[in-house]
């Protein structure tokens, strides 16, 4: 189990390593990088005990239409702080999710989702600028071929999520 985990982590590190090496032989897919970011966000986020008991899996939800879905599904069964990731190909019901990844396809139902999310402890990660600007906890963007993110602390607080200061330090902006 341990060696398997090490292998997986090794793969992730290799992935990230490639990210930092612009002259690397293989161009890495932007989606894979974003999926890795999502994984890292989960690592630096703390959920209240009642929604994520010790050893319970983390539900990572994204609609199958999301371009990231394929990359995200690679995260299935990976372990974050002792919690196995379970990838679900739906965004509803949102209350069953721990991490909810959205993109521009989700713009229409965002208003609806936002209402459902009120009082829920969900880490919303948006790959769409308008959703990011409208109450998503973390918004991803690509800036000069580098992936960056912004954090909406008001949204994080209302979701009662505790984001690590280490993560906040890396954010391009924190509101």
């Amino acid at each position: 189990m341990r060696s398997e985990r090490a292998r997986r982590l090794g793969a992730l590190a290799a992935l990230l390593g490639a990210l930092c090496a612009p002259g690397a032989a293989q161009p890495v897919q932007e989606n894979d990088m974003k999926a890795a970011y999502v994984f890292n966000f989960a690592v630096f986020t703390e959920w209240p005990q009642e929604v994520l008991a010790g050893g319970a899996p983390i539900s990572l939800c994204a609609s199958a239409a999301n371009p990231l879905f394929h990359a995200l599904s690679q995260l299935n069964d990976k372990v974050v702080n002792g919690h196995r990731i379970a990838v679900r190909n739906t965004v509803t019901p949102v209350r069953g999710c721990h991490v909810l990844v959205l993109d521009k396809n989700d713009r229409e139902r965002w208003a609806q989702l936002k209402r459902e999310l009120a009082g829920a402890h969900v880490l919303t990660v948006s790959d769409d600028l308008s959703i990011s600007a409208d109450g998503a906890v973390i918004g991803l963007s690509v800036d000069e071929r580098r992936i960056a993110f912004v954090v909406d602390m008001a949204a994080a607080r209302s979701a009662r999520l505790n984001l690590s200061s280490k993560l906040l330090r890396l954010a391009r902006s924190v509101q």
Partner: peptide, 11 residues
């Protein structure tokens, strides 16, 4: 640790 995770050299 976060800088390493995100490969953020600047951080």
């Amino acid at each position: 640790s976060a800088a390493l995770m995100f490969r953020d050299a600047k951080a």
